[in-house]
Design a protein around this nucleic acid. Structure first.
Lengths: 271, 271
DNA sequence: TAGTGGTCTAGACCACCGG
DNA sequence: CGGTGGTCTAGACCACTAT
């Protein structure tokens, strides 16, 4: 209680928690509590080093994480400032259905309806950059929650007759999984789109709804490093049964529990 | 041409480009070219330091960026490895319409249709965690591309009669913009959902389509650090005229032009 | 000019992991 | 055990910014 007047404002060098973790959380708490306000300049790195008895490199390591998270904004020659905007836009993570449901804690199943070798139609051929009619492999899966279909998933791969797909590996395949198993070459780039459409007659049949009902469509195309396409996936979700969601919480306010800094993980991925 | 046989494999200390930038790009190029393959172990940090005549801390600074991007995976006691999976899921950035169109390079307009003080209906009241019927402020904007409406945007704010909204500031407001202007307090957390719905009669009128047509709905709720809600935005896009999209390109393969490492920016945000 | 962040060094000790 | 990455130090020089 000597210097600024708060608690938890010193770095405990005896702790197993790295010093830069501790300093990072101290600063984060100072922002969350209002002790540091949006747009404020924080003390210079040298001052923080003196204040907390750390080397400047260690102080920088602490600030680095907060800068990466968009919470601090360094300005050369001027100082480091608390961002004026902690929450701006957001990002929605696109996972394969099984993964997403696991993340959300919702019990879900995937039912493999079939694996077929078939000629590519126009859309698939365009996506895979092959001639229409070329042989492609299709994996068709029904996505269910509580036994009710919520989505129908199609994954198309360039057909290579030398490959052997193991049935046992098809339970929860993500598109990258499949492509990596089927293709030699570096999987380097991907493209994603999310849109709203009307359910086709065929999809409505799978989904147990009427044709024309709104569906959420997530498409993913994967490319190899040489520019070739490697795989195309299209997942069609019933609009009334599935949605995408994300939480943005840069200061870890939701998870605050007064305990030690176990919320450090929040910084690791911005999502 | 003394050591490993490629070009561009030395760090030029006379360059203005930081050494860690150069080493990072060397390693990235080695992965993109196949010289380093997925799952490979890269040389230990001490070896890289010797090889490129850098200190170990500088080597670590170079690797740090690649680890953050998910391209390298360090394992304590074992070494640092090229990730087996460079492209897994992806993230779709959710921007305000104007921002998103600017990013995509599509000319677009926003037309403010009105600002109203009105009682909150059930949905809005729930989102803002207030009683139904409480006064809220609504900003209604029509989103257009080439003069055609593609979306209708509603932003709801807790109404504070002490505030003065300037008409001139309402052209391209994002929800965080508005909330910050209207609310005192730290804007600390946000929640986003993306779903497919049928156009309501009212929205169909704005969008120039039939009621029941599929629409893409993006909802955003902002919270203050004390847990109160601060703003709720709902943007309804014509399903046939607007979609969300993202490109994932961890190795910068799309942008490679053979020139110097001007593609460094790719690492800065995973998006 | 003085102060700031950006980069870099040449060490150090540690925890972890395989053999 | 030896090698690896994780952390940390106490300096250094630089480019940038404001005054």
């Amino acid at each position: 209680m000597s210097v600024t007047g708060g608690r938890n404002l010193e770095v405990n060098r005896a702790s197993f928690e790295p010093a830069y973790h501790q300093l990072r959380e101290i600063i984060r708490r100072q922002i969350a509590s209002g002790e540091l306000r949006l747009g404020d300049r924080i003390p210079p790195e040298n001052e923080l080093a003196q204040r907390y008895q750390l080397s400047r490199m260690t102080v920088r390591r602490a600030l680095e994480d907060l800068v990466e998270a968009g919470i601090l904004v360094p300005k050369r020659g001027l100082g480091t400032f608390v961002a004026r905007r902690l929450v701006d836009a957001g990002t929605v993570r696109i996972d394969d259905f099984s993964e997403e449901m696991r993340r959300r804690g919702i019990p879900a199943e995937c039912k493999l309806l079939g694996v077929r070798i078939m000629p590519a139609d126009g859309n698939v051929a365009t996506r895979l950059r092959i001639d229409a009619g070329s042989a492609v492999m299709l994996l068709l899966r029904l996505l269910l929650v509580e036994g009710e279909p919520v989505g129908i998933d199609r994954k198309y791969l360039l057909y290579d007759r030398s490959s052997r797909i193991l049935e046992s590996e098809l339970e929860h395949p993500s598109l990258p999984d499949l492509v990596e198993r089927e293709t030699s070459g570096l999987l380097g780039r991907a493209s994603i789109t999310v849109k709203a459409c009307s359910a086709s007659q065929e999809d409505a049949g799978y989904l147990g709804c009427a044709a024309g009902e709104p569906v959420l469509v997530v498409e993913q195309t994967l490319y190899l490093s040489d520019g070739r396409s490697a795989g195309y996936g299209k997942t069609v979700y019933r609009g009334d049964k599935h949605y995408l969601t994300a939480e943005i919480d840069p200061l870890g306010i939701r998870d605050r529990d007064g305990g030690q800094a176990e919320m450090a993980g929040i910084l690791q991925r911005r999502g």
